[in-house]
């Protein structure tokens, strides 16, 4: 049980770190290099997909997992 919990926590931490890296990257890219709408939109899509998949557990909708 505690191992599963630690695994879930670790998954959340890795996702959070990914999101932070992508946020800092889009900030640095936009401020220093290019403010390309397409590029920034792609980064935003990746971030949104990570949140929907990991934080929001979208797969529970069709898998019917309990808590």
């Amino acid at each position: 049980m505690s191992e599963q919990k630690a695994k879930a926590y670790r998954r959340g931490l890795i996702t959070f770190l990914f999101l932070m890296v992508l946020t800092i990257a889009e900030y640095i890219v936009a401020v220093n290099f290019t403010s390309s709408i397409i590029m920034l939109f792609i980064i935003a899509l990746i971030k949104a997909a990570l949140i929907v998949q990991v934080f929001m557990h979208v797969s529970r909708l069709w898998r019917g997992e309990s808590h």
Binding site: S36, A44, I51
Partner: peptide, 26 residues
């Protein structure tokens, strides 16, 4: 679970709003 889902949704909205307001364009 429900309140958490709602909160994450609000975060997803900001994921698109932040670059649209602060970063995109000159």
């Amino acid at each position: 679970e429900g309140s958490g889902l709602y909160w994450h949704f609000v975060d997803v909205v900001w994921v698109f709003y932040y670059p649209a307001l602060y970063l995109m364009g000159t």
